[in-house]
């Protein structure tokens, strides 16, 4: 009887250890995603900066300029002390690393460029997006150009409102992220292009 009880206690001990490990893993998981994202972002940023340093002379015979490929950009918002690389695409895997450009949107300077990023977890790059004020500056470095935008308005839309990435009649930058009110709405920041130099 005592032996049986001892075995049961041993089993309980193993179970409780497993449960504690699972619990601690869950608590630490959001933090780990942050570290992973920051680590990957550093690499990406380095790649983008290096690629911009290499000046390839334009090829006169290249007539494919109309099909430019977005190969990364650097998004900087001094007002919220943000500097993150931007990738092409908005799949969950990509957004787990850094913000991504909606492939359906325009390239910087050509229309409405839309970028999505995480508000919390995965490095939470857009955590303070809602704190921006109209007039704040946003810089987007892409293809050896720095595009300067000025925040026009902040608003929320329903989570299936894709109109935010549609053309708005001028060159703009639209940042989208989740909202603190839950998954049913998205926070939008719309900025207008000032100059490109």
């Amino acid at each position: 009887m005592a032996r049986k009880k001892r075995r049961t206690l041993l089993k309980l001990n193993r179970w409780s250890t497993l449960i504690i490990i699972a619990g601690v893993s869950l608590v630490l998981y959001p933090l780990l995603t942050d570290f992973y994202a920051w680590y990957e972002q550093d690499d990406l940023k380095e790649q983008i900066v290096n690629s911009e340093d290499i000046n390839i002379p334009p090829d006169d015979t290249d007539v494919s300029s109309g099909t430019a490929v977005f190969d990364g950009a650097l998004l900087e918002i001094p007002a919220i002390d943000l500097s993150v690389p931007v990738q092409e695409g908005t799949s969950l895997d990509l957004l787990a690393i850094s913000p991504g450009r909606y492939t359906e949107s325009a390239l910087p300077g050509e229309g409405n460029t839309a970028i999505a990023g995480h508000r919390n977890m995965y490095g939470n790059p857009f955590l303070h997006l809602a704190e921006l004020q109209p007039g704040d500056k946003i810089f987007l470095s892409y293809d050896d150009e720095v595009y300067e935008y000025e925040v026009e308005e902040l608003y929320t839309v329903e989570n299936n409102d894709w109109s935010v990435i549609e053309p708005c009649g001028y060159a703009a930058l639209t940042l989208t992220t989740c909202h603190q009110d839950g998954r049913s709405v998205r926070q939008i920041v719309r900025a207008r292009l000032l100059t490109d130099n």
Binding site: L12, I20, L26, V27, M121, V164, T176, R183
Partner: peptide, 27 residues
Amino acid sequence: ELPITGGNIMMFIGSGAALGGLGIMFK
């Protein structure tokens, strides 16, 4: 939906704390 760009941190912390608490209780 537009891309999901927010994880529920409280869900992780809550679930983790609940599990951890259970484990400690049994210990």
